[in-house]
Amino acid sequence: MKSNYNKLLILGAVLSALAVLLHIGCIIFGAPWYRVFGAGEDMAQMAEAGSNQPALITFIVAVILGVWSLYALAGAGVIRRLPLLRTALCLITAVYLIRGVAALPFMYQLSENSPLFWLVSSGICLFFGVVHLIGLRQVWQKLK
């Protein structure tokens, strides 16, 4: 039996959902997780000091990634069609791809994070973007 669902967009949804879980983990476990996942020493120190700002920023990012996961599932045909589906998937894909490549030329000037952090996180974002791009291309005609 052949599935009508787009497997790459389902993978994209799972990847974004995994990122949501990691962000929620940062909120729950605080400074050590902010450090491990490269949020920067400033975020870790604010969390240690009891500031709500790191949790709020991280929560907003998690919500955005959660919405992106839902859009990927809608594009894959798993859930009902969401508003502006084609446009949203194009923007989501573009953000992942741009984040994957745009930070690299500036990695030595960007925050206190190490070049290794920028290489790893950029590679992850680039992978997410390519998964979305190929999946989007496969369902493009269905999204009209």
Rank of each mutant, 00 (worst) to 15 (best):
K2D: 02
N4L: 04
Y5G: 02
K7P: 01
K7G: 11
L9T: 02
I10H: 04
L11Q: 03
A13P: 15
A13S: 15
V14G: 10
S16M: 12
S16L: 14
V20F: 02
L21C: 07
L22H: 07
L22P: 03
I24L: 14
I24D: 01
G25R: 06
C26N: 06
C26I: 04
I27Q: 01
I27W: 03
I27V: 15
I28M: 10
I28D: 02
A31N: 08
A31S: 15
P32Y: 09
W33T: 12
Y34L: 03
Y34G: 02
F37D: 11
A39W: 02
A39N: 05
G40M: 08
G40K: 13
E41V: 06
E41Y: 04
A44S: 10
Q45C: 06
A47W: 00
A47M: 04
E48Q: 05
A49T: 07
G50E: 07
S51W: 08
N52R: 10
Q53T: 15
Q53K: 15
I57V: 10
I57A: 09
T58K: 06
V61G: 00
A62R: 08
V63A: 08
I64D: 03
I64F: 09
L65V: 03
L65T: 02
G66M: 10
V67R: 01
W68M: 07
W68F: 11
L70I: 01
L70N: 01
A72W: 09
A72F: 14
A72S: 07
V78L: 11
I79W: 13
I79N: 12
I79M: 13
I79D: 13
R81M: 08
L82M: 14
L82A: 05
P83H: 12
L84I: 05
L85E: 10
R86W: 03
T87K: 14
A88Y: 04
I92V: 11
A94H: 04
V95E: 08
Y96E: 05
I98A: 09
R99F: 06
R99V: 03
G100S: 10
A102G: 08
A103C: 12
A103M: 14
L104P: 04
P105H: 05
P105F: 01
F106Q: 15
M107F: 02
M107G: 02
M107K: 11
Y108K: 14
Q109W: 11
E112N: 15
N113I: 08
N113Q: 13
S114K: 13
S114Y: 05
P115N: 13
L116Y: 08
W118F: 13
V120I: 14
V120N: 08
G123H: 05
I124A: 13
C125L: 04
L126F: 14
F127N: 09
F128A: 00
F128T: 00
G129P: 04
H132C: 13
H132G: 07
L133F: 03
L133P: 00
G135N: 06
L136A: 03
L136C: 01
Q138P: 07
Q141C: 06
K142Q: 15
L143T: 01
K144C: 13
